[in-house]
Simulated scan of single mutants.
Amino acid sequence: MLKWVILAVFVGSTLYVHFRGRVRLKFFRQLTDHSMFMAPVNVFMYACSRVPTKPYVSTEFFDDLKPLTASWQEIRAEALALRDAQQIKAASSYNDVGFNSFFRRGWKRFYLKWYDDAHPSARELCPKTTEILNTIPSVKAAMFAELPPGSELRKHRDPYAGSIRYHLGLVTPGDDRCYIEVDGERYSWRDGEAVMFDETYIHRAENGTDRDRIILFCDVERPMRWRWAGALNRFIARHLVAAGASPNQEGDKTGGLNRVFASFYAIRLKAKALREWNKPLYYVLKFAIFGGILAWIFWP
């Protein structure tokens, strides 16, 4: 009986996540999207959230982030120095499971921290920014993210609802052709201006200008209604999300998920080759595997 209750909760949560918002992934893509596996946890996060569960969230709920906007020019100076030194870049190998697909379309990053203390490379190259971030415990992850001219991020949703995404414009075209779209609503970055959004809504980004875009990108802990819910959120982040740590340079921490990602990606490359060769066969095998796993778990 318990396993059927678990299945019902899982299916109900997945349907809620799929139909939440105005923009949706195609249904069969949603069934195999990585965010599906976190659906029950995410529904819990929405239910316990102390801030509105809307695509965009006002920065007024996060007074502790004001030092970032107040210091945006100093932060920008460090970001520009990194760009000039070509340190804002794609991963050098398959060791960034969270953002691996973004690199193919031009996106680049330099990690400042990831659910832990700052990377050694960040403390060395960005001392002012890491100093400010260390005074804001609610910022769990931070990076400089670059979207060069002509780059894009296609529709996706992030897998974990325990945080709210923060973007601070540092070097922006100041042009509406350079934008992020969250649940169908567009926002164009501006220098020194911050925006916050729920990254578990479908979102995409594009730089259709001939100028670069660099932002400070942070994951900020979602405020929860009850202390025990906040403790659970931090537990999940510390023991699951933190495993996605990716290095900038040798000597930086690499999380457990990224240590095994290269092996899994080799399998994924073979799957992608099969899809190119025979797409119907690829999907038949894909859903057969998922169906077989469910039957093994739930069939008497």
Rank of each mutant, 00 (worst) to 15 (best):
I267E: 11
I236C: 00
R211Q: 15
R165W: 02
W299K: 10
D210I: 04
C218P: 04
M1K: 08
Y166A: 00
Y187N: 14
T130C: 11
L7C: 01
V220A: 06
T129I: 09
G162K: 02
E185A: 11
E181D: 09
T32L: 10
P40H: 09
H18G: 00
P280A: 03
H203V: 00
Y160A: 05
F99K: 03
Y16D: 06
M38L: 13
L25V: 01
W189R: 01
K270P: 02
L153C: 10
L82T: 04
G292Q: 11
V5S: 11
S49T: 05
H239C: 01
P40E: 10
L269H: 08
A8L: 15
L65N: 06
A194M: 10
A242E: 07
F217W: 14
K3F: 08
F27L: 13
H34C: 08
C218I: 03
K3P: 03
P40N: 09
T32P: 01
Q86I: 09
V97D: 04
G12N: 13
G244Y: 12
D33A: 11
P40G: 04
S188R: 06
T59N: 01
Q86D: 13
G291C: 02
A266C: 04
W189H: 14
D84Q: 13
E276L: 12
Y16H: 09
E193S: 03
D183E: 01
G174H: 11
G291I: 09
D96N: 14
E74N: 08
F19N: 04
V182N: 06
T129R: 08
A118Y: 12
L125Q: 11
Y160F: 15
V241Y: 03
E181A: 08
K89C: 12
G244F: 15
R268P: 04
Q87M: 15
L232F: 15
D158F: 12
V97Q: 04
A122N: 05
N100Q: 13
I214M: 03
W72H: 10
G98N: 02
A77H: 12
A194T: 01
N207P: 00
V41D: 02
F264H: 08
E152C: 14
S163Q: 08
T135N: 11
Y46M: 10
G208P: 02
F217C: 00
K89R: 14
R109G: 08
K54G: 03
Y283M: 03
E131P: 02
D175K: 03
K66P: 00
D63E: 13
D212K: 07
L232I: 07
Q249V: 07
A85V: 02
V43A: 07
V220I: 12
E206N: 05
S13R: 09
N95G: 01
L7G: 04
A122F: 10
A8D: 06
F37D: 01
M224V: 04
E181C: 13
D84Y: 08
I88P: 03
